[in-house]
Amino acid sequence: MSNHNKTDHHKDDELHITSYSEHFGTWVSLILLTFMTVFISVYGADLNTLTVATALFIASVKALVVAYYFMHLKYDPRIYRVMLLVVMALFVVFLIMLIFDYLTR
């Protein structure tokens, strides 16, 4: 297919191949993060809400790593990152508006 529209892609025509070692490195970091979050939860201090916040923070870091490296977002045209960001932002605003109702009742 000819490359006719300017907006979506300019530099993405050259194929980017992620190396095996990069995938392996990604995997190692994900496993480390998993053990970190498990250990914090099992042996960590009882911090209640803070524990949940930590767990969710680590989960988000993991999700970002998966999306960026395994799902190739890092090397994709910017529009993919922008769209995902918009979708996630939309979802977060849903969460905030929803919980606002319950917190102010």
């Binding site: 297919m1 000819s2 006719h4 529209n5 300017k6 907006t7 979506d8």
Partner: peptide, 11 residues
Amino acid sequence: IHRLRAPGMGF
């Protein structure tokens, strides 16, 4: 809309 616009047709 993203992929199949006629050549020269921007958004």
